[in-house]
Design a protein around this nucleic acid. Structure first.
Lengths: 136, 136
DNA sequence: TATTGTTATACTCTATAACTATA
DNA sequence: TATAGTTATAGAGTATAACAATA
């Protein structure tokens, strides 16, 4: 029952990495990792997006996005094609298989999240989400 | 006011990185970064510690710890000496300057944390800490 | 001139394997 | 044999700079 003055940054880091580990393990059988899931998730919410717009939403560099989309395209989960309205841009869209994988991945990630949040009451979970959203 | 279904992992990551950025900036004038502060903090709570024990508490690899202690020793914030009871071990201790830096760094990090948590009420802050501790 | 995507490159952080010295 | 610290090395993940195509 010690007061154990953990730094907040330490608590947040441990929580993030703890959840990430569970999520990565849950996604592995689907052949994707957490970063790829994040891309699919963003595209699932708002399609179509250019690579640059996707990168902005994920807060990653556009050069990072190239490699990320390369990987997903190789797996046939997304497709690129030039934007007719501005041919400098690549439109990135989920394929049929990408939509299916997104759905399965969302279920797997939700289950991992559920296990991670198991020690908390429903109201604590809601409170945690609300407080974290407030901090954005 | 949209429901904006952010993934929990995304919220935790953003919170962690947001706080980290503020903390790194607050520590920079003291000549240390967040990881070095974490080492000083652990040593401040429980001294003396071997390198390996410090590494375990910080959940980093012992090879990572070598470089970390190298840096802090160069800055004369910690000192290493062999444990007389077991000469394979290095005892790591804060120097006088290390204690002073730890004190100043704690103040700076607390202020950064305060700014980060500014949008929350006192009770929300306590709740956040409690819930995160519960998740460990 | 500015922007998008791309490539090559470099940097940071971390971990693995092999070595040494001690136990 | 096993452990603590060290070193060399390699692997993620990310960012910077430079270039081609397009606006």
């Amino acid at each position: 029952m010690s007061t154990e003055d953990y730094r907040l940054a330490y608590l947040l880091k441990r929580a993030f990495y703890g959840l990430s580990e569970l999520t990565e393990a849950a996604l592995a059988p689907l052949g994707i990792d957490g970063r790829e899931f994040a891309v699919l998730h963003v595209l699932g919410k708002q399609q179509p997006l250019s690579q640059q717009d996707s990168a902005r939403q994920l807060k990653v560099d556009r050069t990072t996005m190239v490699a990320l989309v390369d990987g997903l395209e190789e797996k046939r989960l997304v497709a690129r094609h030039p934007d007719p309205a501005d041919r400098r841009r690549n439109i990135v869209e989920l394929t049929m298989s990408g939509r299916e994988t997104l759905q399965a991945a969302t279920k797997a990630a939700d289950e991992a999240e559920g296990r991670f949040l198991d020690p908390l009451s429903e109201s604590d979970v809601e409170k945690l989400r609300a407080v974290l959203r407030e901090l954005l």
